[in-house]
Amino acid sequence: MNDLVAAQRQFGTGPLSRVAAIVYRLIVVELLLLACVLPGLVPALLLARDASNLPLYAVCAIPLGPALSAALYAIGQHRPDLTDLNPAVDFWHGYRANLGPVLRIWLPLLAGLTIVAVNLAYFGAAGVPSWWAALLVLIAVTAAVWGGNALVITSVFAFRTRDVARLAAYFLTRTPGAALGVLALLVVAAGITAYASEAVLALAGSVLALLLLRTTRPMTSAIEKEFTQ
């Protein structure tokens, strides 16, 4: 009996099983992520890449926030045991639980970034000093990194929106390595979109979510230790 129990414990916890477990979770999460962003992805692929369509691109990106949050939650619930896999259950639980909180962060962020992008696209017609463009870029980059932090915090923890906003801003300087990591992932995502398409970016969604979780681990560890105990 002891040998049987030992064998059962060994199954599903070895190195190969751990790799299989995370690959399986990423595949399932990717499929569910694609299903959730499809209503926005299809119209985005049909839009011409023109500055006049920036507001429409923002509307198409609305489903991305809740879907990415659900992916972050589901991947964050991963356990390296092949016999204990419920990625679909975790994904939908995260989607339902975080839908409202994520939209309260995601919609203002999209609106703000769209305003900045439109201003930059038509910067020459505005007749303002050139340093204003650099300031707008700095604002956009800071807001995007802040949004990445806020999305992770909302997906992993249950804080009020105003507390999420404060923590996301606080950890921009508290954990600069994590902030730079988020910025690097945003650059990669922008590069994939610019040189390939939104569809290719969507196909890499679960992997990017995993990398975002790993990158922001210093932030989430500090929050768990200092603000949840």
Results as ranks from 00 to 15, higher is better:
185 L>H: 05
130 S>E: 11
214 R>P: 00
56 L>A: 08
197 S>T: 06
27 I>H: 09
198 E>K: 15
101 P>D: 02
52 S>D: 03
217 R>I: 03
146 W>N: 07
174 R>N: 10
54 L>A: 10
44 A>T: 04
17 S>H: 13
187 V>I: 11
48 A>N: 09
95 Y>W: 15
182 V>K: 13
12 G>C: 09
193 T>N: 12
2 N>S: 12
136 L>N: 13
34 L>Y: 10
93 H>W: 07
93 H>R: 07
16 L>D: 10
64 L>M: 04
179 A>Y: 01
117 A>P: 09
16 L>W: 09
44 A>G: 05
129 P>Y: 00
144 A>K: 05
11 F>T: 09
179 A>K: 04
139 I>Q: 13
131 W>A: 06
99 L>G: 01
159 F>I: 04
139 I>S: 11
216 T>N: 09
38 L>N: 00
127 G>Q: 12
15 P>D: 08
22 I>T: 11
90 D>T: 00
207 V>T: 13
55 P>A: 06
143 A>R: 07
144 A>L: 10
104 R>I: 08
182 V>E: 02
211 L>Q: 10
86 N>E: 12
73 Y>A: 14
209 A>S: 14
32 L>M: 08
184 A>G: 13
180 L>N: 02
102 V>R: 01
209 A>G: 12
8 Q>F: 05
225 K>W: 10
72 L>P: 10
166 R>D: 01
175 T>I: 00
84 D>C: 00
147 G>L: 06
30 E>V: 06
67 A>H: 06
219 M>Y: 02
187 V>S: 07
126 A>P: 08
53 N>C: 03
1 M>G: 14
166 R>Y: 01
103 L>I: 00
